[in-house]
């Protein structure tokens, strides 16, 4: 059972710490940072660093509590100017890992984060891109890429539903074609499955979780851009991306 009761306790503890840490960052640290001097770019960089540090601390905490082990491959290729980073989304903690290990990046996140007073300061301060409305998401991400930022997006739009075929929304493909200088996939495996969609926190897996994040080779956008009008190209690219993710992940996204 791999220290089941300890991990159950530690999972509850980790959620509590995440909530408390989020509260401290969101209600105190990030709002206070917004008062510090500096132009918009510096403020944004500061807020992103704070979020990154928070996520990084949380990853270390989960590892030290024995909840998970993780491995990263190829992360030195992330965070380039105008790079769109696309990742599959098997678990709630994927975004924690990407924000923890891709310095300075923007991220497409749920619009609900702007409505919650605690998460709002982070979303605003770090100038992340809201996923709704769709037009604003695509244009916001394109603008971020064109201005030289790297942007993280989960093209499934929501966590993968275990046992169902993977589906990609077209937004990421459209964003890539309009704005990205490089398009780079990250393949995330989380075994056994945990914190996937519709799964309560206390239903913990029987084994300690292993998270691996592999950065794949860049996907060449030129042939798609040359292939025809944007709406056709984005559909073709989206099909291609689905093939890339399925080929790499096969059926072991969820073991």
């Amino acid at each position: 059972m791999d220290a089941y009761y300890w991990r159950l306790f530690a999972t509850g503890l980790a959620f509590t710490i995440f909530g408390a840490g989020g509260l401290v960052l969101g209600a105190i640290v990030l709002p206070a940072q917004r008062l510090l001097p500096g132009d918009a770019l510096r403020r944004r960089a500061r807020a992103r660093r704070t979020v990154q540090l928070g996520m990084r601390t949380f990853v270390d905490l989960m590892r030290m509590l024995g909840l998970l082990t993780y491995e990263l491959h190829g992360f030195e290729r992330l965070g380039r100017d105008g790079q769109l980073i696309i990742a599959n989304h098997p678990s709630l903690i994927d975004v924690v890992f990407l924000l923890a290990f891709v310095p300075g990046a923007s991220c497409v996140v749920k619009s609900a984060l702007w409505k919650n007073p605690v998460t709002r300061s982070g979303a605003l301060g770090a100038a992340y891109v809201s996923n709704a409305p769709t037009e604003a998401m695509v244009m916001g991400a394109v603008e971020a890429l064109r201005s030289g930022q790297s942007v993280i997006i989960f093209p499934e739009g929501t966590r993968t539903t275990p046992g169902r075929p993977m589906q990609l929304r077209r937004g990421a493909a459209a964003i890539a074609l309009q704005g990205a200088r490089a398009l780079t996939p990250v393949f995330i495996r989380c075994t056994p499955a945990t914190l996937s969609k519709n799964e309560p926190w206390y239903r913990i897996p029987r084994r300690r979780v292993r998270v691996s994040l592999h950065v794949g080779p860049d996907i060449d956008l030129a042939p798609f851009r040359a292939s025809g009008p944007a709406p056709f190209a984005s559909r073709a690219l989206n099909e291609h991306l689905l093939g890339v993710f399925c080929a790499e992940l096969g059926f072991d996204v969820f073991e």
Binding site: E135, A230, P231
Partner: peptide, 11 residues
Amino acid sequence: DSIDAVDLLYR
């Protein structure tokens, strides 16, 4: 759809 609409706006 809304993603096509963005391509239209850019055009």
